[in-house]
């Protein structure tokens, strides 16, 4: 009986604590600002179009790209063993001495262990595998690892995030920190926490990566996306994930 009471009290305290912390944390996922219809699309896996890519990713995981090569599952085992992996990317990779996002890390496996040409950033197959892996971490908090090289990338990303760019002369921070929550035309400016990537964006009518989302923001401020290097894009990604540290991953997200 005392055990039962103790558990009850503990549960109550924990519930109150989580309520307290969520009320304290001013960070919000863009999910909260979406219309109820779009939220329903993300909540229900049977309606979420991104699940079509997840299904493809699950098939690719256990299929060898050509006969005689290894499949992802041959080394890593079942997809469920990838639980938590997506919460740690971008991360520093010692073998290539670079900071890589999850998609680039998948490509590394593909070129090194499967002997296949790397997938392009927006390749449907790459997004599918990425989504299938990230789905395993759904609900887990984003936890960027501590590494000096990653820290350098995060700092570089923070600088880029605060620098004014393009003909419109705006920085990422102008919209997504200073003016977040206010309206830009009909749309509410989000805080830009990358909690659901790869996302199914209704505007794209397909799955897309964070890189693609960044490029579409760059064209919105009329900056030249081609003047940014891959390292700079990954640095921004690393900074954004650090900024969203502790927020739950919700892949595969749906966004308007």
């Amino acid at each position: 009986m005392t055990n039962y009471l103790l558990t009850l009290v503990l549960a109550l305290v924990l519930a109150l604590w989580s309520l307290h912390t969520s009320a304290q944390d001013p960070r919000r996922s863009s999910f909260d600002a979406m219309s109820p219809a779009t939220q329903a699309l993300q909540r229900d896996d049977s309606q979420n179009p991104a699940m079509l890519w997840v299904k493809e990713g699950e098939a690719l995981w256990s299929r060898a790209p050509v006969s005689g090569t290894k499949s992802c599952a041959d080394c890593h085992g079942g997809l469920s063993r990838m639980r938590g992996v997506a919460t740690r990317y971008p991360a520093y990779d010692t073998s290539s001495s670079r900071v890589l996002n999850l998609g680039a890390r998948i490509n590394l496996c593909r070129t090194n262990h499967q002997g296949q040409p790397a997938w392009r950033t927006e390749d449907s197959a790459r997004l599918s595998v990425e989504a299938a892996i990230a789905l395993q971490s759904r609900g887990l908090p984003i936890t960027p690892p501590a590494h000096p090289a990653l820290k350098a990338a995060q700092q570089r990303g923070a600088t880029l995030f605060a620098s004014r760019i393009g003909q419109v002369d705006l920085s990422c921070a102008d919209c997504h920190t200073t003016l977040a929550g206010k309206r830009l035309g009909g749309a509410k400016l989000p805080q830009a926490h990358p909690t659901g990537y790869p996302i199914y964006r209704l505007e794209w009518q397909s799955l897309g990566s964070l890189n693609r989302r960044l490029r579409s923001c760059l064209s919105a401020v009329r900056a030249d996306a081609s003047s940014f290097s891959d390292e700079e894009f990954v640095a921004i990604e690393a900074y954004l994930m650090q900024r969203a540290n502790g927020m739950p991953l919700e892949t595969p997200g749906v966004r308007p």
Partner: peptide, 9 residues
């Protein structure tokens, strides 16, 4: 009965 199909339309 819910059915979703992948198609570019």
């Amino acid at each position: 009965v819910r059915v979703l199909i992948q198609h570019p339309m």
